[in-house]
Amino acid sequence: MKVTKLANLLVIALALTMAASGCKKKPTPLINIPRGQTGGPADVGQGNPVGLGNGATGEGVTGTGGGGPVGQMNPADVEHWTPNTEIFKSDTVYFAFDSASVKTMEKAKVAAVAEAFKANVSPAAIRIEGHCDERGTEEYNRALGERRALALREALIDLGVDGAKVLTVSFGKDRPAADGHDESAWSKNRRGEFILLTPPK
């Protein structure tokens, strides 16, 4: 009888201890996403209404938009510039799955683009187009493609290229370089392409 009573007490004690330690998980505060900044209208500019025309008929447009304080150029500034997709084609940078890190073996390509661009004295800009393979969800891939383009932009800036001349665009998985549903195709699609833009003559 005595043993059972003791066992009883032990169980209750254990139960109380568990209750005291708490069942509820507190949300884990992040430490590497800092407090967001407030942006005043003067800093970030506004999405101006532009004459896109009737959505159904799709008339011609002119685009405007604000750039950020440390950010990218206004894409409207280069809207009618001539793209050259061939000049840096062999410098297309490839990425690992679900990664936007520029691999060591790819860095020579970035350096080649940086040197060629800096050596060029006439007006020009670079558009970096980031892409993904088909294996992600749509919006995740659109952000990942952008992250890849941004990583290459940062690498160019680190090599002395003027960031105001480098524009990024993500195509997510919408523009694969290779069709196919295996790693041979996927590895060709996880890429950043450098497009040289020059003003119309």
């Binding site: 999405g47 209404p49 532009v50 685009g63 409207a76």
Partner: peptide
């Protein structure tokens, strides 16, 4: 417009305007 931007479209009229069109 070239870069991916965000637009708001009134479905009754088809009229739309730019919500966000920036570099990047």
């Amino acid at each position: 417009l070239g870069s991916p931007g965000i637009f708001l479209q009134d479905l009754s009229t088809g009229a739309r305007k730019t919500v966000a069109y920036y570099g990047g």
